[in-house]
């Protein structure tokens, strides 16, 4: 399965970025092979508003099946849901640990956003 993980770094040992819309990078990973590539999120980091919406589109366009992140607000969640991307929220630690947990089936998909929108 191809997934996106919000990350503050660019390796599998990097920490998960708790922010989705304004995450530093997205690490796009094949969960079977652990092969990954980096999608920078700089263009959304400095957006005056709508970072969550734009980040949602960024990862949806990469045709990932799921997203792992810390906090996901309602607008980003709606975009991801509309694109058929499943969301896992409230995750911290390294990217690698999170993917391994996903592979063992110990992560649950979120039914909704876990934080309020930031309004900007």
């Amino acid at each position: 399965m191809k997934i996106a993980v919000s990350s503050s770094g660019n390796t599998l040992e990097s920490d998960i970025d708790p922010r989705f819309g304004r995450a530093m990078n997205f690490i796009i990973i094949n969960t079977e092979t652990m092969a990954f590539e980096i999608k920078e999120n700089t263009q959304n980091l400095n957006l005056p508003q709508g970072a969550g919406i734009q980040a949602g589109k960024t990862v949806a366009d990469l045709e990932v099946e799921a997203v792992i992140t810390g906090n996901c607000g309602p607008k980003a969640f709606n975009v991801l849901e509309a694109a058929g991307v499943k969301v896992i929220t409230g995750i911290s630690g390294t990217v690698k640990d999170a993917v391994e947990k996903l592979n063992t089936g110990s992560l649950a998909y979120a039914g909704g956003p876990n934080v309020e929108g930031h309004w900007v």
Binding site: L47, Q49, G50, I53, Q54, G56, K57, A60, K75, N78, V79, A82, A83, G84, W119
Partner: peptide, 18 residues
């Protein structure tokens, strides 16, 4: 300029509060 309207998966989504 405000990300208030966007297309995703053959749908147009609007965000009225934006």
């Amino acid at each position: 300029q405000f990300s208030a309207i966007t297309t995703i998966a053959k749908k147009v989504m609007t965000f009225p509060e934006m």
